[in-house]
Structures are given as C-alpha cells and as structure tokens.
C-alpha cells in the first residue's frame, strides 16, 4: 500500500456542552485504501465524519484531510473530497444529466469538463438511454451507483461514503462494492461507514468506535485473529457495547 497519508488525525475531539462525542482519536488513512469506519449508533461516527469533511469544527486536536487542515482550511477540504450519503444523494426532480451538470458546477468544473465527465460517467454506468430521465424515477440501487460516480466528478483524492448501501438488495450491494474496489484500484481513498458486517470484511482496514474512542483499528483478518473469532460481526459484538 502506498504510504501517502490522505487523512491524518491527532487527538481529534468534539464536545457538546459536557458531552464528549469524539474523544481524542488519532489515526491515519492512506492513498488507495478502503477504510471502514464502524461503530454502534451514538458511538460518535457521524460527529467524527462531520469534522473530517469540514462541516464541524473540532473542539481540540488536529486533522489533515486531502492535504488541508479541517480547522483552518475547511473550504479547501470540501473542494478536495467527495461525499455521498444514503440520506442525501441527488435531486430527484432533476434529470441525470442535470444532476451531473449541477454537481460538476458546484465542484468547479468548466463546461467542457462537465461534458466530458457526463459522457464518460453515463457510458460507464450504461445509462446512455436514461440520461434525460428524472433521478427520482431510478431504482434505489441505481441512484446509489450514480451518486457515487457524481461524488467522484472532480477526481477527489478521497471519497466519504456514509452508509451507502443501507436498504439496498444483496446483489446491488455487491455491485456497489465492485465499483468501490475499482475506484480504490485507481488510487482513490475510500472512507466508508456501514452496518453490514460482511462489508467490513471487504475493507483493507477498519476502525471500531466505542463511546467516542477508537477501540480497535486493523485489517479485518488481524482483528478476527486478535479477538479469536471467525467474523467481523463477532468482533463488533465483542467490542461495541450498547451505549445510550
């Protein structure tokens, strides 16, 4: 694996009043790596991710993402990353083409670049005949594949995927992961959260957050060895106590 660091955090913390949502987390993520970011509901994953994508300021600690400081250079962080979540992906009332044009513009691509990217993207996804259809009319699985591609329009070094496969059928879920693998092979770093523990096995390394801290961080194979179990699901159940 390439040792260029795409994410580097040191003692990153976030407090809300007396509540410490993220407690002194330090970790690195490398170029071309598929990094799984796991944890129970309420463990602090979302808060940590918000800091890494530049939309929430850390209370203390440092984080460099795609070469920029999240505290002082949040706008540059946003420009240099891709982001996709299950909840917000694209505009249902715009066509596929309009969505690509819109997000291309947001990411600062010029008209020619948008044109090139649109052609490339629809041909890769086999959506040539659907380009003028409303995104809202697409099946969920296609929406997810499309919004993954849209998150990559500006060739970011890293893309953040927040539960990208929730509720998607098992085959589409696997097709989605094949897209992830292919993108990582091209050198893009993938930072992904999921509640499907079989997907944790597809990552190069995973971290498991418990009560605001990173309790474990290693390759799935090593974690299973360390906890003497046969699946990531068991690792998760051993580590992540239910805290509320």
């Amino acid at each position: 694996m390439n040792q260029e660091k795409i994410i580097s955090t040191q003692n990153l913390s976030k407090q809300f009043g007396h509540f410490t949502a993220v407690n002194n987390i330090s970790f690195d993520v490398y170029k071309g790596e598929i990094f799984g970011f796991l944890g129970a509901n309420g463990a602090g994953k979302t808060t940590a991710m918000k800091m890494l994508i530049g939309i929430s300021k850390p209370t203390s600690g440092e984080a460099l993402v795609a070469g920029f400081d999240v505290k002082h250079n949040a706008e540059m962080v946003k420009k240099n990353i891709g982001y996709m979540s299950q909840k917000f992906s694209m505009y249902d009332d715009l066509t596929i083409k309009e969505n690509i044009t819109f997000f291309g513009g947001i990411y600062g691509l010029n008209r020619n670049q948008i044109k090139e990217k649109t052609a490339l993207l629809v041909s890769e996804l086999g959506l040539e005949n659907e380009i003028n259809k409303l995104v809202g009319a697409l099946p969920l699985g296609w929406k997810q594949k499309l919004s993954f591609s849209v998150a990559l329009l500006h060739d970011p070094k890293i893309v953040f995927l927040d539960e990208p496969t929730g509720g998607v059928d098992p085959i589409t879920r696997r097709q989605f992961w094949e897209m992830i693998y292919a993108q990582a092979n091209k050198g893009t770093t993938i930072f992904v959260t999921t509640h499907y523990m079989d997907e944790a096995e597809y990552c190069d390394r995973v971290s498991i957050m418990v009560e605001g801290k990173i309790e474990a961080l290693d390759a799935p194979k090593n974690l299973k060895q360390q906890y003497n179990v046969t699946s990531m699901n068991e690792v998760f159940l051993k580590l992540a106590r239910n805290i509320e």
Binding site: A40, N41, A43, E163, G166, H195, F236, A240, R241
Partner: peptide, 14 residues
Amino acid sequence: DEPTTGVDPVSRKE
C-alpha cells in the same frame, strides 16, 4: 416495518 434498518449490529441483536 423495518424496525432495524440503519441500526447497528449490537442493537439489532438486542
């Protein structure tokens, strides 16, 4: 109806 969608493995088990 989908009581456990988006819920982590520990809470799902419980």
